[in-house]
Design a protein around this nucleic acid. Structure first.
Lengths: 116, 116
DNA sequence: CTGGATCCGCTATGATACTG
DNA sequence: CAGTATCATAGCGGATCCAG
């Protein structure tokens, strides 16, 4: 077992503790998670809209990544019982609270990776 | 092809543009990248030290993730020609400029994911 | 239109043994 | 100590077909 982010807590507490940075890592792990959140940060979007916005993502993967984000309570899925069907995705409050981090990442990238 | 993060740029410019958020995603993609950077954010660390700090990571993977971070200019590798060998890893200026984002992620996690 | 369900291949990850 | 080399494995990502 390892530590590092917790100091010298007693073993019992260590067992019950999870590295916060790793928790975040677990949520944004997935090739498209971050860019999906990014695209939802400004507005609600429909399934097809997301697919158009994301380069080369397949339906299956988009569905799966959205479901995982839903499970993590980052994204809300609203189904309208119409014909043809209409489904809108938006950020939950938790997802919205993550927006500043997304913006930081975008700005950091533009500032530091521009020339690469 | 898709867009979204760029407005209505002419096609030629679109081709040459890369989504900044995706660039960041590419760098931190990898199961251990974020936690490695996190562990290097406070101090320089030796190879074995990192392995002790990270739960269940194997040598091969640790080596590879460090190499990739090196290629992305996030981590600096300093080799001391001694016996026994000694290698120290630290953040480059680019890596250091990423620390605020790591901190944000940690704080966001502690504040919002605590109860899960 | 919005996806669910399958199948499949690749890549990242992981375990182990060996080396300078 | 700090890797390298090799092999095994799992899961993700992707394509395709099917359904309400």
């Amino acid at each position: 077992m390892a530590r590092s982010w917790f100091g010298d807590l007693p073993e019992e507490q260590i067992e019950a503790t999870v590295c916060p940075v790793t928790q975040t890592q677990d949520i944004i792990a997935g090739k498209w998670k971050i860019i999906i959140l990014w695209n939802l940060s400004t507005q609600t979007r429909r399934f097809n809209e997301l697919q158009r916005l994301l380069p080369n993502i397949s339906k299956g993967i988009l569905t799966r990544q959205l479901r995982e984000l839903e499970e993590d309570n980052m994204v809300h899925r609203e189904v309208y019982k119409e014909v043809p069907p209409k489904v809108e995705y938006s950020l939950t409050p938790l997802g919205q609270s993550f927006i500043p981090i997304l913006q930081s990442m975008g700005e950091w990238s533009k500032k530091n990776l521009g020339a690469k």
